[in-house]
Design a protein around this nucleic acid. Sequence first.
DNA 1: GACCAGGCACATC
DNA 2: GATGTGCATGGT
Length: 217
Amino acid sequence: MSNQQLNPYEIIFDILYNTFGPQNWWPADTPFEVAVGAILTQNTNWNNVKKAIHNLKASRMLSPRSIHNAHEKEIANLIKPSGYFNIKAKRLKNLTNFIVNECNGSLMNLLKLDKLEIRRRLLSISGIGKETADSIILYALQKPIFVIDAYTKRLLFRHKLINSLDIDYDECQMLFHSNLKNDVILFNEYHALIVKVGKEYCKKNPFCTECPLNTYS
DNA sequence: GACCAGGCACATC
DNA sequence: GATGTGCATGGT
C-alpha cells in the first residue's frame, strides 16, 4: 500500500510499528498499579520505578486501601528508588484518598463517567497533571486519549510537525486526535513506540543517523 | 562528576 | 501569563 493517502502521523506510526512491533504497554498487573507507576515515573527513569513498585508489592502495599491506611513516611521509604520520594508519597496518598473517598475504593468506578469528566476529576488531584491523568485514562481505564510527553514533543519538533518545543500540552494532543483514528489500541501503541524510539536513538545519539524515522524525513 | 530520566506545583515577576 | 525552582534516586 502506498503512503500517499496517509498523513505524517500515520506514516510515523507505521514506521515505528513495523520497526519495533507491539510494545504491550502498560507494564503492570492492575489498573491501580498503572496509576501508581504513572505517578512514580514523573521525570524519572522507569528502571527506578520498577524497584519502587517491587518494594510496594513485597510489602503488600500495592492497593488503594493499604496505601490509604499507611503512614506517608512508610510509603516514602518504600518508593525511595524512584526519586522525589517525599513528594511522590504525598501524591500517592492524594490518589488513594480520591479512590477511597470518591470512587468507592476502585478506579474502575470512574468508567461510568465521560472521558473528559474523568480527566477533569483526575486533574483535581494535587500531583496529577495532564500526562499522568491521560496515562491513567489510556492505560488503566482503556479509553482513547493520546498521552503527550517530552519524547513526543521532541519527535514532532524534529520532524517539523511543530515549530517549538514549548507547545501547549492540549494543543499537541489535538494534533494526534485530529490526525488519527480514535482507537485505544492505536493510542496505546503509538505513545509506547514514541518512548521506545526516543530512548533507543534520539537521546543516546542526537544526530539519529540510525533512527528508523530517518527514512521518513 | 555531569547529565539525564515516560512531571508537577508553587513562587515570583 | 511566562519563567524559574525544588523535588532525589540510579544508570551512563
